[in-house]
Structure formats: structure tokens, C-alpha cells
Amino acid sequence: MLSKLVSIETLKPKLKEMRFLLYLLQKNKLTKLALYVAVGLFLVALLAPFIVPYASHIRDEANPSNKLLPPSKEFFFGTDELGRDVFSRVLYGTRISLNTAVLSVGLALLIGVPLGAIAGTIGGWIDEVIMRITDIFLSFPPLLLAIAIVSVMGPSLQNTMLAIALSWWPWYTRLVRGQAISLKERKFIQAAEAIGTSSYKIIFGHIVPNTISPVIVQASMDMGGVILTIASLSFLGLGAKAPTPEWGLMISTSRNYFLNAWWYSVFPGLAIFVTVLVFNLLGDGFREILDPKTRKN
């Protein structure tokens, strides 16, 4: 009973802080708009199977009679070479892209954050080793690393995710390490040391929670970049495979028809653009409000 009470009590101040953050986010109109669109995108992603007009067009179904029709009341974004509704496929693509991007970033965070916190807090040779490895991964152009990985493991969305996570984690390691080093100078870390708290608890109890704000900013900004990379890889034939309605893949296929069916490539492209834009705007907004310099006021 008591512990239940405790958890509610614990939540209250957290909610208060969240409300404050939301308030700050809303102060910038553009960020506010981006926030709404982002929520909308996640909703679409979640509900995609239920809201697309032609659910069967998600798969390999062919309707030759309808092929390459321009946008109309029936097919908002026209149809593709198999006569499938581009609107349904673009809508469903949201689910695929967001899902892949969230998982990739999540995986990268899972690798990068602890390594960065350990390197920054403990220092010494552990730091040296971790940072050298990070340097090596950073010297690969991300796309090239992804290409290399996918060419070993074969193209599939899972491998794309893995490839992206592998090329993205070093950024989080660097970020968190820098944070950890400056946090280490804070007195509450020294207080914990004086108390006799173990390094494990200091790293994961004190350091990691305090790096959350910059990590969230970075992650939300990275979402855009990751979605772009997924699309690029699929475009190169190194990601999703047909008939998955992945945006990059759709544009890739549309290349063969783009001179006489502009809608086929334009709408998936716009979808990518809008989604990436929204995340970049959000990231920018986050950065502005979480920046201690602007937060002082």
C-alpha cells in the first residue's frame, strides 16, 4: 500500500517537469506545429493497418487495370505500376520508417550511452580504448559502413537497422562521455563518492540520468538523419525488399516511370521530407529549450 503511494507521489513532480517542458516547447510556434505533426505521424504509424483506404495494396497485389493512374478522388496520390494505391502505401510507409528509425536509434543508444558514461566517468585506459574504437567507427562514412554491413549480411530491414545502429552509436558515446566528464566535476558526484557509492551506481544512477536531456535532443535530431539513411539504403537496394511499402524503395522503383508518372516518386519523397523536417524542427526546438543558457531565464 505504502509503496503504491510512493510511486504516485514520485510521479507528481516528474509530471510537473514534463508540463513545464511542454510549455516551453509550445512557446515557439514552429516547434509547436512540429510537435503536433510528430504526434500525428506516430498515430498514423500506430494505426496504419486500420486507416489505409486499400489495406490489400500494401502487399504484392496487382490490379493491372488501374496501373499508373494520376491522382484522383479515388486514389489521392495516384497508383503505381501494379495499380496499387500510392496514398495507402505512403501512409503505411510511415509505420515502417518510424518503426525502423526508433529501433535503430534505440539500439545505438543502448550501445553508445553506457560506453560513453563508462569512458567518461572511469577514464584512464578504459576511456582510451573505448574512444579509439569510437574513432575507428567514426572514420567510416556512415553510409559506407552500412553498405559494407548490408553487403555481408544481405539486404533486409533488420540488417539496415543493425547497420545504422552500428554507425550511429559512436556519436552518443562521444556526447555522453563529454557530459560525464563535466558531470564528474559536480559536487553531487563527489558527494556520492564520499558516501562510498559504487562506481556502477554512480555511472548509472547519477551520470546517465543527468545526460538524458542532451541525449534526447541528439536522438530526436538523429531521427531525421536516420529516416533519411534508411530511405537512402532502400533506394540503393540495400534495405527493405519489395513489396514492403518503404518510401526509399518506392522512389527507387518509380525511377523507371518517373518521366510519365510524377506522382509515383513525388509523394513518397514528400513524405520523407515532411517526416524528417518535423524531427529536425523538434530537435531544434528541444535544443533551444534544454540549453542551460536559455533556460536560465
Binding site: F188, Q190, I195, P209, N210
Partner: peptide, 20 residues
């Protein structure tokens, strides 16, 4: 160590801001 404790100068930095 339990028997020696310290109170730091600046209470803004000596308490973890993310903890209750």
C-alpha cells in the same frame, strides 16, 4: 567511510537534480 561525511559549498551542485 561511513563515519566521515561532507557537506559541500554549493547546494545547487551538490544534489543530483534528477533525484527526489
Amino acid at each position: 567511510r561511513k563515519d566521515i561525511q561532507i557537506v559541500f559549498q554549493d547546494p545547487y551542485w551538490s544534489l543530483n537534480p534528477r533525484w527526489l
